[in-house]
Amino acid sequence: MQSTQTSVSAQPPRSQFRFTSQARAAWLFMLPSLTILAFFIVLPIFQAAWMALHDWTLADLNPTFIGLKNFADLFKDDRFWNALQNTLVYTIGVVPGQIILALVFALILNARLKGRTVFRGIYFLPVLVSFAVEAIVWRFLLDPDIGYIGYYSSVLGLPRIEWLRSPDWAMTAVILISIWRWFGFNLVILLAGLQGISESYYEAAEVDGANEVQKFRFITLPLLRPSLLFALINAVISALQAFDQIYVLTRGGPMFSTETVVVYVYREGFINFDMGYASTAALVLFGIIFVITLGQLRILRYQESF
């Protein structure tokens, strides 16, 4: 068995043959996906990049080529820097919170506790319901004057917090609500990963006298790495692109305190109709996300399976 595993690279003549036939198969397997991605995502991305080099407003019928002027303007734009800062704060607030919570509860729910399917269902519920409706419920709950949380905290004598109304608290509220919404989603991903880890490893470790921490450190974590990598990278990308959660909760306010880069992109593109400038901001964000993701892949060694 060991030998078959290495045969692919170890035996030149056969591997040569294998390689070509596998390569052909691989491209055929990827053909449908790559075609769709190329036409409906990659092509529009290049079109957007082309816009970024123009004074491309939807109102203007003849966009003029302006080279990198949009980029130069962007780097002088206080609103963009504010949006970038908000985006990073949001990401740093949301990602660890949601991944750690998801990991902890995935570990608990992986044990054969009675009723775990019910808990898993409840934790997953937030992503099943329309976010626009959830946002209405949350604004309602957090209203410091007539909302449940505001009212009952005043009854209990707790300090009043303005939450979404206040520039100081709105980002915190948005982060907490986002963690609430997404941790169950990540939990399901990690649970799928945990299910793939064999009991036999733990049994073997027990025989060797390993404690819980050692088992977690040397069995669970390494074997969970592919799922964890996915959950982490996906969470970081989604957080850096935060839009829906902000738009339905605060529209970027109050006083731009929750305006993220994508909310800014949306405003510039769809309200001010300056598509060229919006594309520029989006491309810069793309660059940032790309570097961060590459870094994560490097650190977490994505090419190794175990």
């Binding site: 596998q22 991605l37 990308i237 919006a278 594309s279 790309f290 090419q303």
Partner: peptide, 24 residues
């Protein structure tokens, strides 16, 4: 499957996730 350019294709697919949909 082993084929040349696998990592490039993988990264390219990942990259499509990184451009906000609002702009496309």
């Amino acid at each position: 499957l082993n084929f040349r350019g696998r990592n490039v294709v993988f990264l390219a697919i990942l990259a499509t996730m990184m451009v906000p949909v609002q702009v496309t």
